[in-house]
Design a protein around this nucleic acid. Structure first.
Lengths: 208, 208
DNA sequence: CAAAAAACACCATTTTGGGGGGATGCGCCG
DNA sequence: CGGCGCATCCCCCCAAAATGGTGTTTTTTG
């Protein structure tokens, strides 16, 4: 078995692209098989390059990096994807991770950290720059100042799973009427009038 | 302003507890104000200790660490919580993060990494051991072998948000009847007969 | 072509939201 | 202490909306 890891780089800024290739190529354990400035070219040669790891930027001309990630994984699901982007806004971060990226670095990552991150992601880790990790962790945390009572939160949580009043009642060992009361109170507290709005607000404010 | 960070340690194994205190105390920028072997004692002195950071184990005698995290944050929401646990199973990790922990280290973390993690978590980061970060990132990733078509996935996603057939139709610019057709096909493909089951299965298999 | 997506109709049944009213227990405040 | 607010729980009624279970058909797209 060959223990050199084949890597491709997709980055539209030529200088950055070549810089990355140089840093990675300086290591005997890595081999940069190709570099691209857009996703289309990278996808065309995906089979031929057969990279174990793809280092990808997100804001790319033509196909966006997020779409690129999806297509790469559709073609070669064994490929590991590591994002390097200037963006630290949560939407893009989550889209990239949902699309299948295994790690997310910001572009201020220095050489040593970059190489460490590559090693880490190749051994099953998920390297993330500090701010990114923080965003990700925060996404799990509930709003601690919820206006809802514990029981109301229970009900809303089950409602969000598509349960009917009846099954919620069964699950919480209360009557359907009580469920209705809770839901009415929830609607009042959230200033909404129906399930859809309530769930939208609940998701937005991380109440459940 | 005082630039020494006050830290408390909650860890039932005395040797480990003292070891952690020693490592942390060796740094001038940190001060271990107190150490505890259970949550109750730590909570009693929380006001007095006024720690900026709490290093906490999860499997503790009496009150579990997860519950401890919640109570600490209820008392002093400005406190930063860093978990150190032997457990790498996803349930506990997500419970800890949902409860409000800002980072999660496994106990095999060495001294240098521990101190780095403390610095990182205090500056708004979210330090995680490699396997933990990987678990967290994987939790975002969809099942890539979904039996559902793109459009069916769209419909199911909106259904999961509590939207009505009508609002789904509006949102996707299709008729309500088409929505119904898609849902019918979804039920068939997932071998379920109703919305609740479909959503349960979809969440479990990460189809949405 | 076959699969996917989209659309229309009919109909019984469920779910839902909104309106009442009422009971209990618990903690807090004056 | 007694009252007040809050959370929790339960019951009735009703009409509108949503759902699911059947059909069938057309268009698009790989």
């Amino acid at each position: 078995m060959n223990n050199v890891t084949k890597i491709t780089v997709i980055e539209d800024n030529e200088a950055v692209k070549d810089g990355l290739a140089l840093i990675i190529g300086s290591q005997q354990r890595f081999r940069v098989v190709n570099t691209y400035t857009n996703c289309m070219d990278a996808l065309k040669n995906l089979r031929k390059d057969a990279p174990e790891l793809v280092l990808i930027d997100l804001e790319l001309p033509g196909m966006h990096g997020i779409e690129g990630i999806k297509r790469i994984l559709r073609e070669r699901s064994s490929t590991t994807i590591l994002v390097i982007s200037v963006h630290e806004d949560s939407k893009l971060v989550f889209e990239a991770l949902c699309a299948g990226a295994s790690g997310y670095l910001t572009k201020d990552t220095d050489h040593i950290r970059l190489l460490n991150a590559i090693d880490e992601v190749l051994t099953g880790g998920a390297p993330m720059s500090s701010k990114i990790a923080s965003l990700v962790v925060k996404s799990f945390q509930r709003n601690l100042n919820s206006p809802l009572s514990d029981r109301e939160t229970d009900v809303l949580t089950l409602l969000a799973k598509g349960k009917t009043y009846h099954s919620i009642a069964d699950e919480l060992f209360i009557s359907v009427e009580t469920v209705k009361t809770h839901i009415r109170n929830i609607y009042q507290k959230l200033h909404v009038t129906n399930k859809t709005e309530a769930l939208k607000k609940a998701v937005k404010d991380k109440l459940i």
